[in-house]
Protein backbone atom coordinates (compact mmCIF):
# COMPACT_ATOMS: atom_id res chain seq x y z
CA UNK A 1 0.00 0.00 0.00
CA UNK A 2 2.81 2.39 0.92
CA UNK A 3 4.68 1.45 -2.24
CA UNK A 4 1.61 2.26 -4.30
CA UNK A 5 1.38 5.73 -2.72
CA UNK A 6 5.02 6.38 -3.53
CA UNK A 7 4.39 5.27 -7.09
CA UNK A 8 1.41 7.59 -7.38
CA UNK A 9 3.45 10.50 -6.05
CA UNK A 10 6.31 9.73 -8.44
CA UNK A 11 3.98 9.55 -11.45
CA UNK A 12 2.25 12.74 -10.32
CA UNK A 13 5.58 14.52 -9.92
CA UNK A 14 6.65 13.46 -13.41
CA UNK A 15 3.35 14.65 -14.84
CA UNK A 16 3.58 18.04 -13.10
CA UNK A 17 7.16 18.44 -14.29
CA UNK A 18 6.17 17.46 -17.84
CA UNK A 19 3.20 19.84 -17.79
CA UNK A 20 5.39 22.69 -16.57
CA UNK A 21 8.00 21.91 -19.19
CA UNK A 22 5.40 21.65 -21.96
CA UNK A 23 3.73 24.91 -20.90
CA UNK A 24 7.09 26.67 -20.90
CA UNK A 25 7.97 25.14 -24.25
CA UNK A 26 4.67 26.30 -25.78
CA UNK A 27 5.16 29.86 -24.53
CA UNK A 28 8.76 29.78 -25.71
CA UNK A 29 7.72 28.51 -29.13
CA UNK A 30 5.33 31.44 -29.42
CA UNK A 31 8.29 33.78 -28.95
CA UNK A 32 10.15 31.90 -31.70
CA UNK A 33 7.26 31.79 -34.15
CA UNK A 34 6.14 35.40 -33.88
CA UNK A 35 9.15 36.94 -35.70
CA UNK A 36 8.92 34.29 -38.42
CA UNK A 37 5.21 34.95 -38.89
CA UNK A 38 5.79 38.70 -38.97
CA UNK A 39 8.39 38.16 -41.69
CA UNK A 40 5.92 36.00 -43.60
CA UNK A 41 3.27 38.72 -43.29
CA UNK A 42 5.70 41.32 -44.62
CA UNK A 43 6.64 39.08 -47.55
CA UNK A 44 2.98 38.48 -48.30
CA UNK A 45 2.32 42.24 -48.24
CA UNK A 46 5.16 42.73 -50.74
CA UNK A 47 3.32 40.27 -52.97
CA UNK A 48 0.09 42.16 -52.41
CA UNK A 49 1.82 45.42 -53.34
CA UNK A 50 2.95 43.87 -56.63
CA UNK A 51 -0.54 42.54 -57.38
CA UNK A 52 -2.07 45.96 -56.71
CA UNK A 53 0.51 48.31 -58.19
CA UNK A 54 1.81 46.33 -61.16
CA UNK A 55 -0.90 43.84 -62.07
CA UNK A 56 -3.86 46.05 -61.14
CA UNK A 57 -5.60 42.89 -59.95
CA UNK A 58 -8.85 43.44 -58.08
CA UNK A 59 -8.51 43.09 -54.33
CA UNK A 60 -10.26 39.69 -54.26
CA UNK A 61 -7.98 38.32 -56.99
CA UNK A 62 -4.90 39.82 -55.34
CA UNK A 63 -5.72 38.27 -51.96
CA UNK A 64 -6.37 34.86 -53.58
CA UNK A 65 -3.07 34.97 -55.41
CA UNK A 66 -1.14 36.02 -52.29
CA UNK A 67 -2.88 33.27 -50.27
CA UNK A 68 -1.73 30.74 -52.85
CA UNK A 69 1.90 31.83 -52.54
CA UNK A 70 2.07 32.31 -48.77
CA UNK A 71 2.84 29.49 -46.30
CA UNK A 72 0.51 28.67 -43.39
CA UNK A 73 -0.61 30.05 -41.04
CA UNK A 74 -0.28 33.52 -42.63
CA UNK A 75 -2.01 32.38 -45.84
CA UNK A 76 -5.22 32.10 -43.85
CA UNK A 77 -5.42 35.89 -43.52
CA UNK A 78 -5.61 36.29 -47.31
CA UNK A 79 -7.59 33.13 -48.07
CA UNK A 80 -10.40 33.93 -45.63
CA UNK A 81 -10.53 37.60 -46.69
CA UNK A 82 -10.65 36.67 -50.40
CA UNK A 83 -13.34 34.05 -49.88
CA UNK A 84 -15.43 36.44 -47.82
CA UNK A 85 -15.16 39.20 -50.42
CA UNK A 86 -15.84 36.97 -53.42
CA UNK A 87 -18.86 35.36 -51.77
CA UNK A 88 -20.20 38.81 -51.00
CA UNK A 89 -20.56 37.89 -47.31
CA UNK A 90 -18.86 41.10 -46.30
CA UNK A 91 -20.37 44.44 -47.29
CA UNK A 92 -16.95 45.99 -47.78
CA UNK A 93 -13.31 45.08 -48.28
CA UNK A 94 -12.44 46.18 -44.75
CA UNK A 95 -15.05 43.77 -43.29
CA UNK A 96 -13.66 40.92 -45.40
CA UNK A 97 -10.12 41.78 -44.28
CA UNK A 98 -11.28 41.90 -40.66
CA UNK A 99 -12.57 38.33 -41.02
CA UNK A 100 -9.20 37.29 -42.34
CA UNK A 101 -7.43 38.95 -39.41
CA UNK A 102 -9.81 37.30 -36.92
CA UNK A 103 -9.17 33.92 -38.54
CA UNK A 104 -5.39 34.43 -38.46
CA UNK A 105 -5.58 35.37 -34.76
CA UNK A 106 -6.90 31.91 -33.90
CA UNK A 107 -3.92 30.07 -35.42
CA UNK A 108 -0.93 32.40 -35.17
CA UNK A 109 1.48 33.63 -32.53
CA UNK A 110 0.94 37.26 -33.48
CA UNK A 111 0.12 39.60 -30.64
CA UNK A 112 -2.86 41.92 -30.43
CA UNK A 113 -0.61 44.87 -31.34
CA UNK A 114 0.56 43.01 -34.49
CA UNK A 115 -3.05 42.27 -35.43
CA UNK A 116 -3.93 45.92 -34.82
CA UNK A 117 -1.42 46.94 -37.52
CA UNK A 118 -3.16 44.56 -39.93
CA UNK A 119 -6.61 45.88 -38.97
CA UNK A 120 -5.46 49.46 -39.62
CA UNK A 121 -4.12 48.36 -43.03
CA UNK A 122 -7.52 46.87 -43.86
CA UNK A 123 -9.18 50.25 -43.43
CA UNK A 124 -7.13 51.63 -46.33
CA UNK A 125 -7.03 48.70 -48.76
CA UNK A 126 -8.89 49.10 -52.00
CA UNK A 127 -10.49 52.48 -51.43
CA UNK A 128 -7.90 54.78 -53.01
CA UNK A 129 -5.75 55.07 -56.10
CA UNK A 130 -2.34 53.49 -56.60
CA UNK A 131 -0.51 56.26 -54.71
CA UNK A 132 -2.83 55.84 -51.74
CA UNK A 133 -2.43 52.06 -51.77
CA UNK A 134 1.35 52.40 -51.87
CA UNK A 135 1.22 54.73 -48.86
CA UNK A 136 -0.92 52.43 -46.70
CA UNK A 137 1.14 49.36 -47.62
CA UNK A 138 4.42 51.17 -46.90
CA UNK A 139 3.14 52.39 -43.53
CA UNK A 140 2.01 48.88 -42.57
CA UNK A 141 5.38 47.45 -43.66
CA UNK A 142 7.28 49.97 -41.53
CA UNK A 143 5.16 49.18 -38.51
CA UNK A 144 5.52 45.44 -39.05
CA UNK A 145 9.29 45.85 -39.44
CA UNK A 146 9.44 47.58 -36.05
CA UNK A 147 7.24 44.84 -34.55
CA UNK A 148 9.52 42.21 -36.08
CA UNK A 149 12.62 43.82 -34.51
CA UNK A 150 10.88 43.90 -31.12
CA UNK A 151 9.75 40.29 -31.59
CA UNK A 152 13.34 39.24 -32.41
CA UNK A 153 14.59 40.91 -29.22
CA UNK A 154 11.90 39.18 -27.18
CA UNK A 155 12.74 35.85 -28.77
CA UNK A 156 16.40 36.26 -27.79
CA UNK A 157 15.33 37.01 -24.25
CA UNK A 158 12.48 34.57 -23.75
CA UNK A 159 12.55 31.68 -26.21
CA UNK A 160 15.09 29.62 -24.22
CA UNK A 161 14.08 30.98 -20.83
CA UNK A 162 10.48 29.77 -20.86
CA UNK A 163 11.07 25.99 -21.24
CA UNK A 164 13.53 26.11 -18.28
CA UNK A 165 11.15 28.33 -16.34
CA UNK A 166 8.31 25.88 -17.03
CA UNK A 167 10.35 22.94 -15.71
CA UNK A 168 11.50 24.99 -12.69
CA UNK A 169 7.91 26.02 -11.90
CA UNK A 170 6.85 22.38 -12.22
CA UNK A 171 9.66 21.30 -9.89
CA UNK A 172 8.70 23.97 -7.34
CA UNK A 173 5.14 22.77 -7.45
CA UNK A 174 6.26 19.17 -6.96
CA UNK A 175 8.33 20.18 -3.93
CA UNK A 176 5.38 22.11 -2.49
CA UNK A 177 3.05 19.17 -2.98
CA UNK A 178 5.46 16.62 -1.50
Amino acid sequence: MENLAIWFKAVGAVLVLAAGGAGGWIIGRGYQERPAELRAVRQALTGLRNEILYRSASLGQAWSEVARRTPPPVNRLFAVAAESLEKGEAGSASFAWERGVASLATVSSLTSSDLEILRALGQGLGNSGRDGQERVLTLADQELLAAEAAADAEREKNARLWPYLGVALGASLVLLLI
Partner: peptide, 16 residues
Protein backbone atom coordinates in the same frame (compact mmCIF):
# COMPACT_ATOMS: atom_id res chain seq x y z
CA UNK B 1 -18.93 56.17 -51.84
CA UNK B 2 -19.95 52.56 -51.20
CA UNK B 3 -21.57 52.37 -54.65
CA UNK B 4 -18.31 53.45 -56.28
CA UNK B 5 -16.36 50.90 -54.22
CA UNK B 6 -18.76 48.11 -55.18
CA UNK B 7 -18.67 49.08 -58.85
CA UNK B 8 -14.88 49.04 -58.73
CA UNK B 9 -14.97 45.62 -57.00
CA UNK B 10 -13.51 47.24 -53.85
CA UNK B 11 -10.42 48.06 -55.91
CA UNK B 12 -10.51 51.77 -56.76
CA UNK B 13 -6.80 51.65 -57.70
CA UNK B 14 -7.57 49.20 -60.52
CA UNK B 15 -10.09 51.61 -62.08
CA UNK B 16 -8.15 54.88 -61.72
Amino acid sequence: GETVRRASRHSVYAYE
